[in-house]
């Protein structure tokens, strides 16, 4: 049996290494452009590590069992009558429970941090309408633009509204998403960390033009932002 365990562990390690390679060799997430997304990526990696472990464990058990105890289809002998084992059953109830609670707590902490608006954030209203976005800057005499421009390093607090049906504001590089719902106001925070141009994507099916409901987000330096907003007024 000793040898069997070694083989099992070996299979598990091979699978884990292979899955880890898949997880790190491809860049699964966009390069983060916001503080919020940095934190989200931490949670993502925590879940990934746990997932790799669980997946490797389960597949190793299956591959090993099939490899070790496979018989011909005509074989009609029975296996040993093992009905259960209370200790093992408690273990595999408790450990997953513990793991998911860790995920839950970490997620809750990150969620809370990502929802904490600092003092005096830049206020932006994102208004969805079939099939375009409009961005209003109430701090700057309601300057309005079809393009989203944000100063780098400054926290922006978005308020989402919708004129007709539900839309969803999403900038993949910010990792933040929130629906714009007719009749209520929703909010989300974004603190851009690097300058650049990113797509604004509508993520909620909103009708025939849903796929084309795109806008541009530009993160620029503070000075550039002031110039831009002055033009918009």
């Amino acid at each position: 049996m000793r040898k069997g365990i070694v083989q099992l562990v070996a299979i598990g390690v091979v699978i884990a290494v292979a899955t880890t390679l898949v997880a790190v060799l491809f860049q699964w997430l966009p390069t983060s452009a916001s503080e919020e997304f940095d934190r989200i990526q931490d949670v993502y990696w925590l879940v990934t590590i746990i997932s790799i472990a669980i997946f490797a464990l389960v597949t190793a058990l299956i591959v090993f069992s099939v490899w070790k105890w496979r018989v011909s289809p005509d074989d009609d002998e029975d296996g040993p009558p093992i009905h259960g084992n209370t200790t093992i059953e408690i273990v595999w109830t408790a450990i997953p429970a513990l793991l998911v609670l860790v995920i839950g707590i970490v997620s809750a902490v990150v969620l809370a941090r990502n929802g904490e608006a600092g003092t005096r954030p830049l206020r932006v209203e994102a208004v969805g309408q079939q099939f375009a976005w409009r961005f209003v800057y109430p701090d700057y005499e309601n300057a309005t633009s079809g393009e989203l421009v944000l100063p780098v390093g400054k926290e922006a607090q978005f308020t989402m509204r919708s004129v007709d049906v539900i839309h969803s504001f999403w900038v993949p590089e910010f990792g933040q998403k929130m629906d714009a719902v007719p009749g209520i106001e929703t909010t989300i925070l974004v603190t851009p960390t690097r300058t650049g141009e990113f797509p604004v994507v509508c993520a909620e099916l909103c009708g025939l033009g849903h796929a084309t409901m795109r806008a541009k987000a530009r993160v620029v330096s503070e000075a550039e932002f002031e110039d831009w907003i002055a033009e918009q007024r």
Binding site: V66, W69, P73
Partner: peptide, 8 residues
């Protein structure tokens, strides 16, 4: 599956 007589 463990220690069974597995018919694939």
């Amino acid at each position: 599956l463990w220690r069974g007589r597995i018919r694939l």
